[in-house]
């Protein structure tokens, strides 16, 4: 219901058969946790595990549209299986290198001084590690146990083979990871919105459904609108990734906008959703927390909301182009005040 009324996801770009398949598979194994193992095996079997990947890593050569469709569907099913990171970030980095790649569930990890510990889903097999060497960025694709050892001992085993990575690929990987999170947040927002609408339409208090109370209507309308706005911003960023996924200058502003909108929107949706669903929604047994919890976690991974706001401002001040709409207008007919066309 919500999905049909939100802004386009670019869904028309995805084959209906593939969309149905994605919906069926993710819905059949929703709930995360132990369902993820079956889900991952099924995705692999169906060729959905590396949608945008090269054939070398068992990929299907699809675009960001198809990948976004899958990532959002997984998020709606409350699965934290990092398929997006595996395909669009770690896998993509490896595709830019001319080495053999074994198909695997991967995450990407930046091992620098400020790095947080990697988020290691139990099914992750390999980690694509990036770090800054004296010569520039380097990368190694290692088994997950090597990372655990590194976190324990504080150093890398000397057997790890580091390869040089172009600075541009390293920077793009950050932006791509940020976009994957935005898509996930949108999926979680949509799932939460659906739960809220269902609850408010059916749960009766004082003799009528909650949705008949104007105060509740205001909460529901606003959270649904935030979800639609987040989707519009993220869909626009995905569209940019489809046509210019390797162009940092074009992709970065669009992704920063998406991260700002999804980040702030998630806060509104999480708070209002719990307010509408009431105490029952705060229990472990209820599905709502899986979505609200996930959206708040995801919005603070691979970047964060406050930094996204700052980045949008910095880019705007530098005269970056965010879309075909330019909000930085000449205020006076002074030629030196004119910006790029």
């Amino acid at each position: 219901m919500i999905r049909s009324t939100s802004a386009s996801w670019g869904a028309e770009a995805v084959e209906p058969d593939l969309r149905d398949l994605i919906t069926a598979v993710t819905a059949a194994h929703s709930g995360g946790g132990d369902q993820d193992a079956v889900l991952w095996a099924t995705l692999r079997e169906l060729g959905l595990s590396d949608l945008t990947g090269s054939q070398a890593r068992g990929g299907s050569g699809a675009s960001w549209w198809e990948a976004a469709e899958l990532i959002a569907a997984l998020a709606r099913s409350a699965s934290e299986l990092p398929v997006g990171d595996s395909d669009l970030v770690a896998g993509w980095i490896l595709d830019t290198l001319s080495t053999d790649v074994v198909p695997a569930l991967r995450v990407c990890w930046w091992d620098d001084d400020s790095a947080r510990r990697p988020d290691l889903h139990p099914l992750v097999e390999r980690v694509t590690v990036l770090r800054e060497d004296t010569s520039g960025p380097v990368v190694a694709d290692v088994a997950v146990d090597e990372v655990r050892a590194r976190l324990g001992s504080g150093g890398w085993d000397s057997s790890v083979e580091w390869q040089p990575l172009s600075a541009e690929v390293a920077e793009l990987a950050v932006v791509r990871a940020a976009l994957v999170r935005a898509v996930q947040v949108v999926g979680a927002m949509e799932a939460a919105t659906e739960i809220v609408v269902e609850h408010a339409a059916t749960r009766e208090q004082f003799g009528r459904p909650l949705l008949r109370f104007q105060a509740v209507q205001a909460l529901v309308a606003d959270l649904a609108a935030e979800t639609a706005l987040a989707r519009a911003a993220t869909a626009a960023a995905v569209a940019v990734a489809v046509r210019a996924g390797d162009d940092l200058e074009v992709l970065q502003p669009a992704v920063a906008v998406a991260r700002s909108c999804t980040g702030h929107g998630a806060a509104v949706v999480a708070r209002s959703a719990h307010q509408v669903v009431g105490a029952i929604g705060t229990t472990q047994e209820h599905a709502l927390h899986r979505h609200t919890g996930a959206m708040l976690r995801w919005r603070s991974q691979a970047g964060d909301t406050h930094s996204a706001d700052q980045q949008v401002l910095a880019l705007a001040l530098a005269g970056a182009s965010f879309s075909d709409l330019d909000l930085d207008q000449p205020l006076k007919p002074d030629p030196s005040n004119r910006r790029k066309s």
């Binding site: 706005l229 700002s260 909108c261 706001d309 949008v312 401002l313 001040l317």
Partner: peptide, 30 residues
């Protein structure tokens, strides 16, 4: 436009809130 110009010439300090609003306006455009 006014606020960006003011920040550029140092009359205002850059605040993340302006970034949030630019992002929202762009999303609304889409």
């Amino acid at each position: 436009s006014h606020l960006l110009a003011a920040v550029r010439r140092g009359a205002l300090s850059p605040t993340a809130e302006l970034g949030r609003l630019v992002a929202r306006l762009q999303a609304l455009h889409h």
